[in-house]
Design a protein around this nucleic acid. Structure first.
Length: 434
RNA sequence: GUAGCCGUAGCUCAAUGGUGGAGCGCCUGAUUGUGGAUCAGGAGGUUGCGGGUUCGAUCCCCGUCGGUUACCCCA
């Protein structure tokens, strides 16, 4: 017999988890559509060469194999590269700027850890074909609205710009080739602290004066405007950094005008992210209630799509990590926690009353009430028990007494009270109670 | 990729180199027109899988699969 077991890092999502996951997706989708984003779906399998050359060292994490036609294929590791392919492939059919969202699984052959899986679901939202800071701001506003709609009690989005990090490295006397390690080191600031990052920087050959300067810049924190002003002063010699800071300032001005509370974001020069294809804004949202990693992240990547399209197409976007959002919400008790989809449970009093119960169930369903029908007849106790265990709130009984009077017994399992009412009124009663 | 820890009933976990237990859950009944609470009874195990050591392995050793923690990495 085949092994009854999952592939490492791949999970089943049983009904109780799915109900919360679907709530999350529906909520985020509703917000995205509020901003006029349109849905896109692409296959999980792509030509391997499409994904190669975008990830750097992470290429070894790509799931790849030969298909039945000996094609060299791979499972997508994110939804951004497929987006780039679509934009290039359907250039004539898409009106830019294009706002699109996508929801689905991606795959990475890395070691599973808390909140990280080999098959993971993401909800992506991107604005393709605009370099306006309004696009960057809209993405940040969208994520703020979405997390608030989901009921997150406290979250903060850290904003940074790739050329601010570049400027920090350059003004500290580091060349671009050494910068990669520096980015990784400062990205660990929250985990390692000042001394830890300093040790790390020195260990990779940064002299201590430069390390001190990097650490001083990276620790700048506080009111977004004040942080920008301070960075502008300290990085004034680096023209690219100055431009980046002006860009960030334009973004937060737009955020304020869009109604995003300044308490929801910070300018964080220490935020690095992977950076492999980011060119401008980078951001990451986290909550103090979940120390292990961020809820979502994103940024501006103005060059990636151009690699496929043959002309530059500036784009900014984000990805919600569904698995992590779900884990955090489940742990914090956020969101609805239904155990089933049904609201009503129709019992069958006995074999001879089957038709009447079926007709009742049909009428409730036609009226828009999610209705579970008993598949057993008689033994009302067992039927009630099934309804109770499923978490269905209302149970309906159609016995000989009720049928004679043209009524139905409606019992609320939550409170335990029940009443008998005319059949014609049951639907309205359930709709009102819901 | 490196190192550690874990894997026993549906779930959470005990146990001993010598016939594997509990709580919760589940099933049946008390209750042939009503779930939860209570009481009584019951079912449920190749101790992840494979190999080795041993008279004998759930326990010790090796491998493997899965989970998990810290590193690495995190598009």
């Amino acid at each position: 017999m085949a092994k009854v077991q999952n592939i490492k890092g791949m999970r089943d999502h049983l009904p109780q988890a799915m109900l919360l996951r679907q709530h999350i997706v529906a909520t985020v989708q509703r917000v995205a559509e509020r901003y006029g984003f349109e849905p896109l779906q692409t296959p999980v399998v792509e030509y391997a060469e499409l994904l190669e050359g975008k990830l750097g060292d992470d290429e070894k994490l790509i799931y790849r194999f030969a298909d039945h036609g000996d094609r060299n294929v791979a499972l997508r590791y994110d939804q951004t590269v497929p987006l780039a392919r679509v934009v290039a492939q359907y250039a004539g059919q898409l009106t830019l700027p294009w706002r699109r969202y996508a929801y689905g699984p991606s795959y990475r052959g890395e070691r599973p850890a808390r909140g990280r899986y080999r098959e993971f679901y993401q909800f992506d939202a991107d604005i393709v074909g605009s370099s306006s800071p309004l696009a960057d701001a809209e993405i940040v506003a969208l994520l703020s609205d979405a997390l608030e709609a989901l009921g997150f009690p406290g979250f903060t989005t850290m904003l940074n710009h790739r050329q601010v990090i570049g400027g920090i490295a350059r003004t500290s006397g580091l060349d671009e080739t050494a910068a990669g390690g520096v980015y990784r080191a400062i990205d660990k600031f929250d985990k390692l602290g000042v001394d830890g990052v300093n040790t790390e920087l020195v260990r990779m050959g940064v002299n201590s004066a430069a390390a001190d300067q990097i650490l001083a810049l990276v620790q700048i924190d506080g009111d977004p405007n004040a942080v920008l002003t301070e960075l502008e002063a300290r990085l004034a010699a680096d023209t690219r950094a100055v431009a980046a800071l002006a860009n960030l300032r334009a973004i937060i001005v737009a955020l304020d005008a869009m109604g995003v509370s300044p308490s929801r974001y910070r300018i964080a020069p220490r935020l690095a992210r992977g950076l492999s294809y980011y060119t401008g804004l980078v951001f990451e949202t986290s909550t103090p209630h979940w120390p292990a990693g961020s809820l979502l992240g994103g940024g501006r990547y103005d060059e990636l799509i151009g690699q496929f399209a043959g002309r530059p197409i500036p784009t900014v976007g984000l990805a919600f990590g569904l698995d992590r959002l779900h884990d955090v919400m489940a742990e914090l008790g956020l969101g609805p926690r239904p155990t089933t989809t049904a609201v009503a449970f129709v019992t069958i009093f006995g074999p001879e009353h089957t038709a009447a119960s079926l007709a009742l169930a049909r009428a409730l369903r036609a009226g828009g009430v999610n209705t579970l029908l008993s598949l057993e007849t008689g033994a009302l106790g067992k039927q009630f028990k099934e309804a109770d265990r499923k978490g269905v709130r209302y149970v309906l009984v159609l016995g000989p007494d009720e049928l004679t009077r043209g009524e139905v017994v409606l019992k609320d399992l939550r409170g335990g009270d029940q009443r008998s009412l005319p059949q014609a009124e049951v639907l309205a009663a359930l709709l009102a109670a819901r």
